[in-house]
């Protein structure tokens, strides 16, 4: 069946197999490189469409990099500007919290120009399935309660009711809910910084 092992043929075969395997992987990598990038862009675009009112420009091309905390100007968040007929109809703010239960998670928050939340969408997370992962359930009360709230005029206390705030937490997922509030607060800060800088 198999041939007898000698140092020469062992080294030779192993080297050839490794070379062949790496070459094959490299080819597939170069072929799938663009589709992978396209899939990532498509995901961002879909999230933008969900969170801001209808627009007719390409928000992925109109990106602002705005810091949430003006003391730390290097840590910027991406802000996608949605326009219809040249007029700004909304801003989609990408915001990442480091306080998630299973690690950091990233959400996209859509604001209308007056600072009211239009809609939100979760981009990536690693929360517990069935518990914290409910942040992805778009029809749940936890997600819909944000819509229509103005986060910039100070009318909403951005923490869960357990901590004395105005937000109903997800049952049995207080940590994830707090993290979501944190992400919303970052997004709100980013939004206020756009209006003062780039409007």
């Amino acid at each position: 069946m198999a041939i007898k092992s000698s140092l020469r043929n062992m080294v030779l075969v192993l080297t050839l197999v490794c070379l062949g395997a790496s070459a094959a992987v490299a080819v597939i990598y170069s072929v799938t490189k663009d589709p992978i990038a396209a899939a990532a862009t498509a995901k961002t675009n879909k999230a933008i469409e969900e969170v801001v009112p209808a627009f007719d420009n390409n928000p992925s091309e109109e990106v602002l990099n705005i810091a949430a905390d003006l003391q730390k100007p290097d840590e910027t968040n991406k802000v996608y500007v949605a326009k219809k007929g040249g007029e700004v109809v909304g801003y989609a703010v990408e915001s990442t919290t480091k306080k998630g239960f299973g690690g950091p998670f990233t959400i996209m928050v859509g604001f209308t120009p007056d600072g009211t939340v239009y809609n939100t969408s979760v981009l990536s997370h690693s929360e517990t399935p069935g518990l914290g992962a409910k942040i992805t359930d778009k029809s749940s009360h936890f997600i819909t309660q944000w819509n229509g709230k103005n986060l910039t005029d100070g009318s909403v206390n951005l923490s869960v009711k357990k901590d004395g705030g105005d937000i109903d937490a997800i049952t049995a997922s207080t940590i994830s809910s707090r993290a979501f509030c944190d992400a919303m607060e970052i997004a709100a800060n980013v939004f206020s910084n756009i209006t003062s800088e780039n409007k």
């Binding site: 480091k98 998630g100 299973g102």
Partner: peptide, 11 residues
């Protein structure tokens, strides 16, 4: 590939 996260530690 993954960040470490725990209560009280920034990931």
């Amino acid at each position: 590939t993954k960040e470490f996260s725990a209560k009280g530690v920034e990931s």
